[in-house]
């Protein structure tokens, strides 16, 4: 095989990995602030994917243009879910939170099956087969747009947490819950905002990834698992870690597809997870637990 192939596949994996990273970023934000593990994360992602597919099929709207509206929709869903469902569970034991989120996940998967059936749905954009040649390297246009869109959304989120007063307030909640109550932050609303932002990441990632992947309802649980692998690899609670983990897993999957067979890609993603757990249990960018 010519050397360019490796580079092509690596770049393709990296770009896909950025979208994975955006998805995992949502999981990381939710866990980091609300301390609830969103076991319905991938399922919410498939909901966003189906919304993008329907908008494209019925109205001809490009998923990349619909990325922000879909993110806004998922934000609203996440906000409402936290306010109505999850806030009452915050003080309960972890296993009942787990049951709640698994229930949500199962309802979502089966709801999608009822509405859309089990067959794969796809989006065929006009630029689906475009590509750019950079020297000897050929970059798939769709994946390039997808990767750039993911970077854009992630950067906006980082800026929000760094500079916006509400973003700082969310970090304060994550930092010291009692302290947040003491200074009079409205913690329940900030939790809802965090879950909404996490869901918005998934909404954006879902809208982007339909350009690359065909959607079926069972993709939900697979993405939930993938998001976990990425977040644990990158470091639980670290936002840059989630992005880095996404890139790493995206690269690994792509290279595994090239060297072995595409169906072996999950095996290599899990191998990375096992290696990280063995040698750096807190994740690549995670802080060591004391």
């Amino acid at each position: 095989m010519p050397a360019e192939i490796y580079l092509n596949v690596a770049i393709s994996g990296l770009l896909t990995g950025l979208v994975y990273g955006l998805m995992a970023l949502g999981l990381s934000v939710i866990f980091g602030v609300v301390r609830v593990v969103n076991f319905a994360h991938g399922e919410m992602m498939t909901v966003a994917m189906y919304v993008a597919v329907v908008l494209f099929a019925q109205l001809g709207l490009d998923p990349l243009l619909m990325m922000l509206p879909i993110a806004a929709l998922l934000f609203a869903v996440g906000y409402a879910m936290q306010m109505a469902l999850i806030n009452p569970f915050i003080a309960r034991p972890e296993h009942s939170q787990f049951m709640l989120m698994v229930a949500v996940a199962i309802i979502l998967v089966n709801g999608l099956l009822i509405v859309f059936g089990p067959d794969a749905q796809t989006v065929q954009t006009s630029y689906a087969f475009d590509s750019f040649a950079v020297g000897p390297v050929i970059v798939d246009a769709t994946k390039l747009y997808a990767g750039l869109a993911a970077i854009l959304v992630a950067a906006a989120l980082f800026a929000f947490f760094q500079f916006a007063p509400l973003g700082k307030a969310i970090r304060a909640c994550a930092d010291n819950y009692t302290g947040a109550l003491v200074v009079g932050l409205d913690v329940k609303r900030l939790y809802a905002l965090s879950f909404g932002l996490g869901a918005a990441c998934v909404g954006a990632a879902g809208a982007i990834i339909v350009l690359i992947v065909d959607v079926t309802p069972p993709l939900g649980p697979a993405y939930t698992l993938l998001a976990f692998i990425i977040v644990i690899t990158g470091g639980l609670g670290s936002m840059p870690g989630a992005l880095l983990g996404g890139i790493l897993i995206g690269l690994t999957e792509a290279m595994a597809g090239l060297f072995f067979t595409p169906s072996a890609k999950s095996m290599f993603a899990f191998a990375i997870l096992v290696l990280v757990l063995l040698f750096r249990p807190q994740g690549i960018m995670g802080k060591r637990l004391t």
Binding site: K168, R171, A172, D175, G184
Partner: peptide, 16 residues
């Protein structure tokens, strides 16, 4: 206090 926030950010939180 909020340990990972800066002193200024901590003070800003009081003014929310």
């Amino acid at each position: 206090v909020f340990p990972s926030l800066t002193v200024l950010e901590n003070l800003e939180m009081g003014a929310m």
